[in-house]
Design a protein around this nucleic acid. Sequence first.
RNA 1: GCGCUGGUAGCUCAGCUGGAUAGAGCAUCUGGCUACGAACCAGAAGGUCGGGGGUUCGACUCCCUCCCAGCGCGCCA
Length: 576
Amino acid sequence: MNLKLFLERQTSKCLSELGLDNSALVKQSSRPEHGQYQANGVMGAAKKTGQNPRQLASDLASLLQEKNDPNNFELEVAGPGFINFTLSGEFLSKTLHDLEKDPRLGVSLDKKRKILADYSSPNLAKEMHIGHLRSTTIGDACSRILEFLGHEVVRVNHVGDWGSQFGSLLAYMDKLSEAESNLGSELKDLELFYKKATELFKEDENFAKSAREYVVKLQSEDPQCMKLWSQFIAESLDHCQNVYERLGVALKKENTVAESFYNNQLNAVITDLESAGLITLSDGAKCVFLDAGKGRDGEPTPAIVQKSDGGFPYIATDLAATKYRSKALQVDDALYFVDARQALHFKDLFKIAKRAGFIDGNQNFVHIANGIILNKEGKPYKTREGGAVKLAEVIDESISRAKLIVSEKASEMPDEEQKRISELVGIGSIKYAELSKNRTTDYVFDWDQMLSFDGNTAPYLMYAYTRIRGIINNSGVPSDKNKNRFNLTDRSEVKLALKLVQFTESVEAVVEDYNPNLLCNYLFELAQIFMAFYEHCPVNSSEQATKESRIHLCDLTGRVLKKGLELLGIEVLERM
RNA sequence: GCGCUGGUAGCUCAGCUGGAUAGAGCAUCUGGCUACGAACCAGAAGGUCGGGGGUUCGACUCCCUCCCAGCGCGCCA
């Protein structure tokens, strides 16, 4: 049961019986002295009708008492008109007992929707770097959570596999194959490959000429060119897939729908825009003028959907994608997990798509913007200039740092197990570092910070889990559920119990605006509360009834931690 | 020039549709391993929430203005 929702409904119902249609605005209390939940809506409601807020709060409290089982919670009217709720131990214990029997841990299913999640979406011309981490981890976590809530999630990796940037790469491949170099091994380091190709482009006239010709060949789908291109793309996709697998990201190759997939739909898109009367010809380019945008010169700026040379800029591809997602896939929602610099692009894109009838009014196409990762100087990494830390490198470094600690703290464990622990701790740390931050703010990349294993980090949560497993394994108590109710006597038991029943509140909060950091906050707080409980309340040395109640509390905490971390895409260990 | 983000403790960040005395982590200081696992716990210290106005019972949150930083704005993706 969602306690917050329960109290909100009860209170709002009573409020409306008093003739007021305001929401009760029930929230988790800001401080323990104010109970466990508080209703903030009374003051606003009183203001509307000119009543005395204290009086209204007190009337409302009486009505609430009357309509509810008096054994459920105590009420207190406080301050200018707050109502504070304190749940009874028995009510909490009962709620917890229900939670224990529920494989979904109190999280109910939503009305099912078909939701497309477009995330990661790297450019295949280059190796994945640190900048791709946000979209990838946030998109993945949100997808997992939406699935858990019962939605059909269509994962899409909209990779960049087309455009003029491939000219140099293909020309370089051509050059290498002529020189009979080992193309395969050259391609292993995509970053270096890209760098060499761009350098040649700058320095070598002939090469530059060849590169430009390859752009044309690519557009006309020249067979020899397409062969090289396919080889390159396959190599690059393998690289991405390798990163996803190492990171434990649920993207599969079959989730890839590359830009080139839409090539044969682009002309139709332009025709659609023309028949919708949206196209204006300007300097030979086909443009859509939107009311809002003004450029540097104060003139309205168009979105160019077809260049004067007949080529298509990426908004054309994206328009084709919205149409495809809407009409062919028939999604209810489409979430684009892409960095905030694209905000204007998506604003234009969705506006045009709506006007052209690609998206209908019931569909939500929305840009879930994430902040960008900055370098030490506080500047964004420029993809085109390179220099961004490779994602594969971050993974390697994190695992090797974890290895160092594991070999020190768990030297008695077999090498295989140490290796496995290092991997999960290393990967978990990276993902948690990313997910626990607010999605929208930019942050400076720092090795030590991202790969820290102390405090509010993945290892802390994983460690809490191993402590729980340790207790349970030593307890000798069989893990059959449906036991008696919890016996919550110590304050730290009550705190833990309350936190556990709030799991559903945090999961639901995430999808309200796609903020996985809210779940991270919750899990960290849960682990902290558990740690305090662990210090205060002996489990296995307590007398039988207390021991059993506490074992169940531990077990439930473990289940919530495991589930929560799983929703973030992080695995737990039995010991570490 | 216009637009979009953001500015909270020494550092990195939370702060949930306006709610009660602004919270964590790291770093610093003090205490705790013959103890269900010290990747931990208990405690201390640390703040004009960028500045200034305004709205109201109440503002980190909403409005205005200014300052600072980053990003975006006609043929790159």
